[in-house]
């Protein structure tokens, strides 16, 4: 995406912004909107509504095989949440941790590409995205090989007595590690996009006014990069919370996340439980997202 910011296209770099476009009124807008929006309504909004109805269904007999009938059984929610509250909390904890680690790694990386990379910039951006074309399941399997118990990393960490469980695989560490790895580019790219837009003269000005580099970063660079930070953390946090691949491949039953539970409940035909869990997950995520966007004071994503 950011790759497309090639020179030669008038983007008014650092100078005056192009004048505001006059938006046209008329029927063309609806013609352009209707096909795509209809698709989203039929295959996103309506399924969500139907999932909500499923989440309130009542079992006809004992056990999922007996089937369900439509009802307004709100207990499904309380039952599902009280039964799987550990997995719920664990998902948010792992995803939050992974998001913070991603931000710590990505900020210097994006900063480096935006301000220091010079003519290597485009190549570096390509390199950040490139691992993504090698399927994410394959890459996660590769981590399984790298972090294996007899592997170099585990042996080395063990010789320094760093690991409480004497292994990395099947521990929360491995799951968070996998989450960080898989969602890193989702953090780097938006960060880069907003850092790249910062006029470096503003940072110089801060230094000229005797701001120490740390203060300049805090008062100038980070506030200006805020839209990228918000977009990046959301793009990392949301998929990480619902992910079940990393936990399944790199973790153990003790690292089960809510995604794993939803997936197994669906596989067992316990549809109302799975639906209630999906809906609760989405509700919590939306609350987190909107409070976060309000707090951060940017609505650029919307």
């Amino acid at each position: 995406m950011a790759l497309t910011l090639t020179p030669g296209v008038p983007m008014a770099p650092g100078g005056e912004a192009p004048p505001e476009r006059v938006k046209r009124k008329g029927k063309t807008a609806y013609f352009l909107l209707i096909p795509g929006m209809a698709w989203l309504v039929f295959f996103f909004v309506i399924p969500l509504g139907s999932l909500f109805l499923t989440s309130l269904e009542r079992p006809l007999g004992s056990g999922p095989s007996a089937g369900y009938t439509s009802a307004l059984r709100w207990q499904n929610y309380t039952e599902a949440i009280s039964k799987y509250d550990t997995e719920f909390l664990r998902s948010f904890w792992y995803a939050g941790l992974a998001t913070i680690v991603c931000l710590i790694i990505s900020f210097p990386l994006a900063y480096f590409i935006a301000f220091r990379a010079g003519r290597w910039r485009n190549l570096l951006l390509v390199l950040i995205v490139a691992p993504f074309f090698c399927s994410f399941l394959i890459r996660t399997y590769a981590w399984k090989t790298i972090l294996a118990d007899d592997g170099f990393i585990t042996t080395f960490a063990n010789s320094l007595n760093l690991l409480p469980d004497d292994r990395i695989l099947a521990t929360p560490l491995a799951v968070v590690f996998g989450l960080v790895y898989n969602f890193l580019p989702f953090m780097v790219l938006p960060l880069y996009a907003s850092l790249e837009r910062i006029d470096p003269r503003l940072i110089e000005a801060a230094a000229d006014l005797y701001a120490r580099p740390w203060i300049g970063l805090q008062r100038v660079t980070i506030p200006l990069a805020m839209p990228g930070i918000v977009a990046g953390t959301l793009l990392t946090f949301i998929p990480a919370t619902g992910d079940f691949i990393n936990s399944q491949l790199l973790g153990s039953p003790r690292t089960r996340m809510i995604g794993n539970v939803i997936q197994t409940q669906f596989a067992r035909d316990a549809l109302p439980t799975a639906a209630a869990l999906s809906f609760s997950l989405m509700a919590v995520i939306l609350v987190v997202v909107f409070t976060y966007i309000r707090r951060a004071g940017t609505e650029e994503l919307l």
Binding site: I238, G259, L302
Partner: peptide
């Protein structure tokens, strides 16, 4: 805008499971 933003804010398990339910 909201309808376009929401699918990106929805975890894949929820997207997948809701379509399956439909």
């Amino acid at each position: 805008n909201l309808t376009i933003f929401l699918p990106m804010a929805t975890p894949e398990v929820v997207l997948g499971s809701s379509l399956l339910a439909l």
